[in-house]
């Protein structure tokens, strides 16, 4: 089945950078971009157990007459086939379209609802967090300026969801042919514990085959150690939260990473089902 990535297009310079990043991602992973050019400032995404309303900032409706051509040009210049343009079929209300959620990936800027001027490092908007939390697909959060990435960096923390993230990283590495580095921040668990997890999950052979380097950070905090992550890597990181306390702390590692690293990030939420 053809793999598809949903992209909400913003016809602005920032939107251009975001779509460039999406196109680059699609090109390396043989994914078809599906572009939605909004005609309304709101849309709904009905996930399995939650409905998320996305209130876009007004720049998403800018210059609708040139939006399609701009998007087409960006995608074609990246050497991709013609993208699919999404036209919503169902509406909860006349100005409130429902956007399908059966995609394999989605690309989102750090914030989708606030003005472009407010977007900077250190902030992931509440809508994007809810999409990450509810979606079955991973969410690509591109860097503010398009920068081609040349390797993948998985942050592996040892949990069951981190294993899913690692599997995704390995799969992306084998499709794209790009090297994969794994980074682990040691805490209560030590190096041997992580290696045991990999063994229990039957990932030893794949780790040997796909992973270029597995770095363990034994001292300093994660925030300090993130300096070691290559500047030209796509960071693959999980965002989890199960149980009441964890729900409150949902995505705390994701926040640390995105506030420190200017890299593009692929975030794997708690409801991610391996589609690729």
């Amino acid at each position: 089945m053809e793999t598809q990535m949903l992209h909400i297009f913003r016809n602005t310079p920032l939107g251009r950078e975001t779509l460039l990043q999406t196109s680059y991602f699609c090109k390396h992973l043989d994914i078809l971009p599906v572009i939605y050019i909004p005609r309304y400032l709101k849309f709904l995404m009905y996930f399995e157990n939650e409905v998320v309303q996305v209130d876009l900032d007004s720049s998403y409706l800018r210059s609708p007459d040139t939006a399609r051509d701009h998007a087409l040009q960006i995608v074609k210049n990246m050497g991709l086939p013609e993208p699919k343009f999404l036209e919503p079929k169902h509406f909860t209300a006349s100005t409130l379209p429902d956007i399908p959620v059966d995609y394999d990936f989605m690309s989102c800027p750090r914030s989708i609802s606030d003005l472009t001027s407010k977007i900077g490092l250190g902030y992931i908007g509440p809508r994007v967090r809810r999409i990450v939390h509810s979606a079955r697909f991973p969410v690509l959060i591109p860097s503010s300026v398009f920068k081609p990435w040349k390797s993948l960096a998985v942050l592996f923390g040892g949990s069951a969801n981190a294993v899913k993230t690692l599997r995704l990283g390995m799969r992306l590495s084998s499709i794209s042919g790009l090297p994969l580095d794994v980074f682990t921040q040691e805490g209560r668990r030590k190096r041997g514990d992580y290696e045991n997890i990999i063994q229990q999950e039957g990932l030893n052979t794949e780790m040997d085959k796909c992973v270029r380097n597995w770095r363990f950070f034994e001292s300093r905090s994660l925030a300090e150690n993130l300096y070691e992550v290559p500047d030209d890597a796509l960071i693959v990181v999980g965002a989890y939260g199960h149980g009441l306390v964890k729900e409150l702390l949902f995505g705390s590692t994701m926040e640390i990473v995105q506030s420190i690293c200017p890299n593009s990030m692929l975030i794997v939420g708690p409801n991610y089902r391996a589609l690729i």
Partner: peptide, 15 residues
Amino acid sequence: VREGAGHGVPEVVYS
């Protein structure tokens, strides 16, 4: 609240 929807009952039926 950015509801963007109608008077209520049709939205419930739709959902």
